[in-house]
């Protein structure tokens, strides 16, 4: 019976280990490879983050406990405030825009239409395409004077190129440009979630509504929207969380060779990165990270309660 069991116990195993103990050892041996890695590289750093937020440390000199100083510093740090508000504005731009596009495409693809699988691939591919590469293309296309976009706009409208928006290079248009890019890149992902939600709706509901004489808009309003509420809620939460974690998109659209962002484009994770890895102010960076953590935790708690309500 034990011919396949790895015997951890030496020869007189039955005398040394009871059945219960052996079963436990087997179970733990299944968990261990993943759990050890998970504990060392995820759990420990998480706990360490809370310690680090209350110290001043540059990585070389001894750590100094400073209490809540890092957090009071945050309250007065206008650069961090800027980063925080930019992140919020970005989130407010991305979330409704992405949701509307994702839902619209999902509804289209849920019909019997021509080349459905091809279309799904087209909409979804930007989500998996390497960010650095597609950001490079976007930067060329949106380039203020050389770029094809402004040249086309100039050809159509006749407005001189100097008067057209400078997109990523323009502090007033930067946020719009990055929102547009993000929607293009990620809407396919949320579209797939919506598609799954749509396919879960009982077709009889639509038939019943049609018999009652409801037109397409009323069917959407009174069947699709309420039936999709749990999916919409899930998409909303994931979108908000992902927007708060944004960093790489901003670096690739806005930063030069020095990887620096200015006041109109800095975001929270950028601020954490810079404070830790450029200013070597690990404690202060961790205090910022705790703020990010608390924000995401707050959203997760809302989501958890909402899922109870909808589920």
């Amino acid at each position: 019976m034990q011919n396949e069991t790895r015997v951890e116990t030496g020869k007189p195993e039955k005398a040394l280990w009871s059945k219960g103990v052996r079963e436990h050892l087997v179970a733990y041996s299944f968990i261990a490879p993943n759990f050890i890695g998970f504990a060392v590289f995820t759990l420990l750093p998480m706990l360490f983050a809370f310690v680090l937020a209350f110290v001043k440390w540059d990585g070389a000199n001894p750590m100094k406990f400073v209490g809540v100083d890092n957090f009071t510093r945050l309250i007065q740090d206008t650069t961090f405030h800027k980063a925080f508000w930019n992140t919020v504005v970005y989130t407010i731009g991305v979330v409704p825009f992405t949701m509307a596009c994702a839902l619209g495409l999902a509804i289209l693809l849920n019909q019997k239409i021509f080349a459905r699988n091809f279309l799904r691939t087209v909409f979804f591919f930007p989500y998996v395409a390497s960010l650095v590469a597609v950001a490079a293309v976007w930067n060329f296309i949106f380039s203020p004077t050389l770029g094809p976009l402004n040249n086309i706009l100039h050809a159509i409208t006749g407005v001189p190129i100097e008067d057209l928006p400078r997109w990523a290079a323009d502090k007033d248009w930067a946020m719009f440009t990055v929102v547009l890019f993000t929607v293009w890149k990620s809407m396919g992902y949320y579209m797939v979630i919506y598609l799954a939600g749509l396919q879960g709706i009982n077709p009889e509901l639509y038939e019943a509504a049609q018999l009652d004489g409801a037109n397409a808009w009323r069917r959407f309003r009174n069947v699709t929207v309420p039936q999709l509420a749990p999916t919409t809620f899930f998409v909303l939460m994931i979108l908000v969380i992902n927007s708060f974690k944004v960093y790489d998109i901003f670096i690739n659209l806005f930063a030069g060779a020095d990887n620096q962002l200015n006041d109109s484009t800095r975001v929270m994770v950028y601020q954490i990165y810079n404070t830790a890895f450029r200013s070597l102010d690990y404690g202060y960076a961790s205090a910022m990270a705790i703020v990010l953590f608390l924000l995401v935790l707050g959203i997760t708690i809302v989501q958890f309660n909402g899922e109870k309500k909808y589920g």
């Binding site: 750093p45 360490f48 983050a49 960093y247 994770v269 954490i272 830790a276 961790s286 990270a289």
Partner: peptide, 8 residues
């Protein structure tokens, strides 16, 4: 989020 504990 990983970004919250990437520094430690």
């Amino acid at each position: 989020p990983w970004q919250a504990y990437m520094v430690p």
